[in-house]
Structures are given as structure tokens and as C-alpha cells.
Simulated assay, not measured.
Amino acid sequence: MFIDSHCHLNFDCFKKDLNHLLVDLKQAHINHVIIPATDAQHWSDIIALCEQYPELYFALGIHPHFLTSIKEGDLALLESTLDNLQRQPRSHCVALGEIGLDKLIETSMETQESLFLAQLAIAQRLQLPVILHVVKTQSRILQLLKQTKFSYGGVYHAFSGSEEIANEFIKLGFKLGIGGVITHPTAKKTQSTLKNLPLSSLLLETDAPDMPIYQQQTVYNSPLNIPLIFDALCALREEPRDVIAQQIYNNSKSIFSIIND
């Protein structure tokens, strides 16, 4: 059994054949998909999608790439929406995200940090884990997490980096999202790191339709590629495949409080 812990299944490229894709996912033993939000405009669409399909879960937040389109009141709306969802029995809202910092975009770091901290504070108040977007800002995000004493952990999405950095995030209660990057022969550093990290710290993700796997034959990445990412991870680890699969499945269920099997 698998969980794709990060997949933008609400994007337009999936809409036409979504029902067929969900059938294929079930046949591939991919039981659940977590859909992280990117902007306020699509929160209601994501909520509606996950209400329609019980195997889907979601997070709400504002991605750093979309901060230029933020409107007055969006943060208040985020908190009130999440609060209302938290009060619902068996809510499929499992995190706040995707949020973070990105040095490769034009939005100033001052603006990014302000919105990151505001969303982190909401997650702390509502006792929600967060899904982190981290691009060349590992040290700064670690610093901010420690300064704010954020205590509900979450996921470092699309992890790539050193064992030292990985362990710093793990100490703060974060799991590491492992995606298609490890299928690429050039990802030697990340592959080496993953050999030594505790299995209890790892999740599988595709970031579909983005983050292509090695020699991808399709235009878009797909959550159906989770087994290929799993195979690549198994090639790096010493544990038996069934042990790896069960532990990672349990990791995903634990950090996201998934109870529907």
C-alpha cells in the first residue's frame, strides 16, 4: 500500500481523466493522495474534490510562488476555513500548506518571510502540521522554525540535501518527502543521504504534474509513478521491501492523521 503525500491532483491536466486515474491508483495499491494548495483561489475546489472522493486528503495554504496574488483578508480566510474544517468529524484537511521560502523567485525575502511566519502561526494555533516548500533556504527556515518554537512538525517537501540538514528537520518533528529526484542518476548526494536516514522519517511523493522521474515518457508526472520512486528508494536501503513499504505508509498516516483505510 502507498500514499502519495504530495500531488496537485486538482490541476487542470488531471481533470479530464480523473475518474480513470483514481481507478488506476487503486489498482496500483496507492490508497490515498494528499493535495496541497497553492493559492486561495483554489481552496474551495480542493475541498469539493476531496469531499467527492474519500481517498483524497488535502492541505490549505499559500505557496510562495503565489504571494503576488494574495488579497487582503486571505490570511483571515485561511484561518477561519481551517478552523471550521478542524471542527468537522473525520475532516480530510490534514495540514497547512504548501508554504515556505524560495530564493529563486522575484518576491522579496522580506515578503516571503512575513507570509510564511503568519501561516506558521495559524498552524500553531490550530495544531496542524505544515507542508514546507524549501528552495535554497534550508538554514533560514530551520532558524524560523526554532525561533517560533513551532511544535506540530510536518513535511519537508521535495527533500534534497545533506544528512546533517535532514536530521535538523527530523529533530523538529518533520518527515522528508522523497520524490522523483532520487530516480535520476545525477542525484548522488541525496541518494547517499537516504541510505543513512531513519526509515521512520521518510514519505513518498510525486509532486505531480511536476518533478518528473528519470526518463519520463509522459508530458506530466503522475501519482502512478509512486511505485517507481519506491523501487528507487528500496535500491538504496538495506531493509526488506515489505518493511520499507509498511513503515513509509505508517509514517504518512501518522503525520497527516489519516484514519480512513
Rank of each mutant, 00 (worst) to 15 (best):
A95T: 07
I165V: 14
T81K: 10
R125Q: 13
Q147P: 02
I105Y: 10
I122T: 05
C93T: 15
L126G: 04
L126C: 04
H63S: 09
H133L: 10
L77A: 11
T68H: 10
A118E: 14
G100W: 03
A166H: 05
S151F: 03
A95L: 06
C93R: 12
A123F: 10
G161P: 09
L75I: 15
L82A: 12
L67Q: 09
L144T: 14
I122L: 10
G100F: 06
Q112D: 13
E164P: 00
L77G: 00
D102I: 08
R87N: 13
Q138Y: 06
D102F: 02
V155W: 08
G173W: 00
T107Q: 12
G154W: 02
P89F: 04
G173R: 02
Y156L: 14
Q88K: 12
L126I: 05
Q124N: 10
L142C: 07
L115D: 03
G154Y: 01
I165L: 12
I99F: 05
L104I: 09
R90H: 15
Q143I: 02
H133V: 11
V134C: 14
R125F: 00
A123K: 02
S69M: 10
I141R: 01
S151Y: 00
I141E: 05
G153R: 03
R140A: 03
K146S: 14
Q124V: 07
Q138K: 14
G153C: 08
S139A: 15
L176E: 11
A118P: 02
T111D: 13
K146E: 15
A121K: 14
F66L: 07
A158H: 10
G153H: 01
I170A: 01
A123I: 12
S151K: 09
M109G: 06
V155T: 15
G97M: 06
D74W: 07
L85P: 05
L126S: 05
V155D: 13
A121L: 08
N84E: 11
L176K: 01
L132P: 01
E98S: 03
L85T: 07
K175S: 09
Q112K: 05
Q147M: 13
K175P: 02
E113Q: 15
V94W: 11
S162D: 12
L128W: 03
H92T: 09
K149L: 06
Q127H: 14
R125K: 13
T111Q: 14
F174Y: 13
